[in-house]
Simulated assay, not measured.
Amino acid sequence: MVNTFSFACSACGQCCNSPPSMTLAELFAHRDLFIGCIAIGRVPRRRPGERLRAGSHEAVLDEADCTAFDAIAGTLLHRAGDNIFSITAQGFDYPSLARCPALADDGRCAIHLHGKPLTCEVVPLDPLVPDGLQNLVLAERGHSAVYLGSACIQEGERDNAALLFAQGRIVDAQARDALMRRRRALEQERVVWTQAVFEALRKDLFDSPAALARIPAGGFLTISIVPALLTLAQSSARCRELCIGYIDSQLALIERSIERALLRRRLDDRPVTQQLRGFANAYRHARAALADEVVSGFFGRSEIGLDDKPLY
């Protein structure tokens, strides 16, 4: 079994088929382009002896592998009992569009030189997987790339591609640096807002079996970015002003997005339109709270979308 992979990005745009995961600062920088949300995922806890497979590639986890997974979870993720969760800021859009909002008409990234999200630099690696097991990530994503019509990830060494992974480690210096910076950014996000949001929502979401059932296997529960904004707004008066400005931009962007969706007249767009209207409603409530400087205790069950008629 070959455990050597090469990578050559042709900027074909095939993998830019949805909005990326972003930091809160990146969302603020692109407030007129990306609708922001919080994506909550459940991350499996790894145990010694567990077999991980990706196509013909397989690894049997040992103590060192599990220790590496636990180290990542301890700095980037969140635990509630035996469950581990990821909480990240995320761009949000209609899945029917099947494209990143930053993708230009020529298939190129319109913000490549103007604040491209760090997570895009990490592609095709995964910051939540230890470096020594990135070959499994590459094997799985290589098959997906072929399915999408790209051959950017190749097994073995290639003359027209950079050697990315070999002998159990990431050998490309730029890839290692991007992975390190993305992990550092996720760690900083945890300090600034994700841990606070996790604790605030713990009772109504993370400790509730019924609520946890809403997190799809292998997918994400998307909720409004409002809890993150309210956490950030408590830092200073300046942060509160920035959050109000961000909300205003997002309300205008959501309105434009819904208007375009109504013109498309697609039935499968309707649930997303409803969710976007919920986002807008939550933004308006949050803006009023921020303007009145009433932030503490603002979000509960309705604000995370767990009521019968959720705000978002």
Rank of each mutant, 00 (worst) to 15 (best):
P130C: 04
P130V: 01
D131H: 07
D131M: 07
D131I: 06
D131W: 04
D131K: 07
G132L: 15
L133T: 06
L133P: 01
Q134E: 13
Q134H: 12
Q134K: 10
Q134Y: 12
L136R: 10
L136A: 05
L136N: 08
V137A: 01
V137Y: 03
V137P: 00
V137I: 04
L138M: 08
A139R: 08
A139N: 08
A139I: 09
E140I: 10
R141E: 04
R141A: 05
G142P: 13
G142D: 14
G142Y: 11
G142L: 13
H143L: 13
H143P: 09
H143F: 11
S144E: 14
S144F: 11
S144Y: 11
S144D: 14
A145M: 11
A145P: 04
A145S: 12
A145Q: 09
V146N: 13
V146Q: 14
Y147Q: 13
Y147W: 14
Y147K: 14
L148I: 15
L148Y: 14
L148D: 15
L148K: 15
L148M: 15
L148R: 15
L148T: 14
G149V: 09
G149K: 06
G149S: 09
G149R: 08
G149T: 06
S150N: 03
S150P: 06
S150A: 08
S150I: 03
A151C: 12
A151Y: 11
A151T: 12
C152K: 01
C152W: 00
C152A: 09
I153R: 03
I153E: 04
I153G: 06
I153F: 07
Q154E: 08
E155V: 11
E155H: 09
G156D: 13
G156T: 13
E157H: 04
E157D: 02
R158K: 11
R158A: 08
R158L: 09
R158D: 05
R158E: 09
D159G: 07
D159C: 05
D159K: 01
D159I: 00
N160P: 03
N160Q: 06
N160D: 09
N160F: 04
A161M: 09
A161H: 10
A162D: 06
A162C: 05
A162I: 00
L163C: 07
L163I: 06
L163R: 04
L163W: 05
L164S: 00
L164N: 00
F165H: 05
F165P: 02
F165V: 00
A166Y: 03
A166W: 01
A166T: 05
A166G: 06
A166P: 03
A166S: 08
